[in-house]
Amino acid sequence: MKRGAIEQRWQGLALIAPLIILAACTEPLVEPRAPRTPTAVIDRYNAIVATAEAGDDLLERAKAYYDRGNIWFDQQNYTEAIADYDRALALDPSMSRAFHNRGLAYAMLKEYDAALRDYALAIRLDPAYRRAYENRVRLLEQLTASTPDETLLQQLADDYGSLAQLIPEAEAPYRYRQGVILARLGDRTAAREAFDAALRARPQHVDALYERALLHYAGGDLNAALADLDAALRLSPRAANAYYVRGLIRRAQGDTRSAIADFGQALLLQPAYPEALIARATAYAEQGNTTAAQADLQRLDNLQLDPTLQQAREALRARLGAP
């Protein structure tokens, strides 16, 4: 009887205890902490550097600094990483990897000029340094995305060319990318050649087919453009934008009926496709089918349009008469 009572009391306490603690936890258990650099790992590498320094093998010392630089990099301390790469390169100026890694570190610090300089040095030391090309390409893509600087774009196109040569199994995609950049630069002949090379390496590269069709289209060779698009559409029968472009070309050739069919196919595949809607409405208007044109115009109201497309819509509205 008595023992039972004691038991019950203990049980009650055991139940209440966590509630008391929860009530006590009015302040956060863990205080937010300022970022800090963990030093324990670096200490181990400091020891390795010290051992190397004690010896007189220059290359071994360079390697030790290089290793520690990588660990600094890993810990996102790019300034220290660059300092260690500097030391390594002072001891052994032929370390292409150190140049490359320093370039990467500069890129992380957003010092893009220095990064590009280091990549260039790494590539000069080792012209087949695939990783350096890849990282430079990544950086250049990033730099040219917002501001298309011609020199950088040209460099980017060249790098894609080098990568295409370095990695034969990836020639098609790299040539394709090279072509896209060259087209962006406005160098249609070189872009053509790049796409041709991509398609030689992989004849079913649908993107290259599509882009080459755009080049033909821009150059006025509508039949060649149609041939490329037909080939691309045979391989990718669900590519809405290829139908759209083929529709534009057919309209330009005067074949409004086929153009409307192509725009319709594009819209079937991708119902929210403002360009195709505007193009089809224009084609309908040219056919005199104002009702269908108005219907497409109304569908546009539900879509987000960028300034260019808004202008195209206004042009369409003006063409359909009513303000």
Partner: peptide, 13 residues
Amino acid sequence: WVDLTIIGAFAGL
């Protein structure tokens, strides 16, 4: 206090 409370409660429990 929160640390002391928790360690105390842990031991107590």
